[in-house]
Amino acid sequence: MANAQTIARKPGRGLLVFKWTLLGPLFGLLLFILPAFLLQLYFSFHSWTIYLGSWWDAEFAGLGVFRDVLTDSRFWWAALRSLIFASLSTLGCFVAGFALAMAMHRPFRGHSLFYAVFILPMLTVPVVIAYTFEMLLFQRGPINGILSTILMTNVNVTWLAQPPIAVFTVIMLEIWNWTPFVFIIMLAGLSSLPPELDEAAQVLGASRWRIFSEVQLPLLRPVIMLALILRFLEAMGEFPKTWALLQGGPGSATETVPVYLFLTTWQYFHISRGAAMSYLVLIFMILIVLLGIRLLRREKQTIDAIHAKPGAGE
């Protein structure tokens, strides 16, 4: 559809003006914010710590600041933690969201109540989530209480005090928070599948599993890619919950890149270092985004192509 015919208005200056009017505000805002990025660039090449002088006469450091960051093992550990956090939480969100979407795909009585509850976590402010779960996660708190009742043993997990478990806990929080996002996307994907396919496969005697894996799943691929990529990128930037709950602790078990960046900039006031780190993160994110975009574009072209064929779809 996107490369179908554009509207047959006479081209000319009017059109050009019109196009730029549409884009104008965005470009205006981007131009407006650009100096902040330039300042950031300036910082990353100069050595400035807030309390050691003013920014305009900070010493030029060339690539020194970048070298410092790149040789800082703490930064790499933080990057590794971020990657683990983002991948596992993305995976968790996806599995839970997809399963929910499958279960909710066909309507039943009380469907809309379930639906309304399932999207609630996404509507909850992240800081609120952190504080609420703090109440729930005490060793002598409701979650252990409920688990004890269900499992009939005394569950005494310290959810926040032991490094590996604390990591698990923040990942679970992220999953709890953002499963609805995947759920909604997958639901939209499922409802777009043509029912005739399903019927045809059943008539041919295919098992449910084969229908799912060989008919539905391939058709859902673009939506799945979309959900995974968006979720992964948002998880890489997660800050409020981890910070409000653990400030990177215990030890440095939950010190992800955003947490380390925050510490460097706002606790050590080492602006240059923070800036250099930001740029490295930015480059890294752009690489991921570009990769993601390549995948997404390929998927989109495929579906556009399918739908552009006469008779298909619509």
């Binding site: 050691l52 490094p163 030890g251 440095s252 050590y268």
Partner: peptide
């Protein structure tokens, strides 16, 4: 000068040892 940074370095390492 730089108290916060000195403090955090000790805090972090001690709390890692404690964990």
């Amino acid at each position: 000068t730089g108290y916060q940074e000195f403090k955090e370095a000790v805090d972090k390492n001690l709390s890692e040892a404690y964990a």
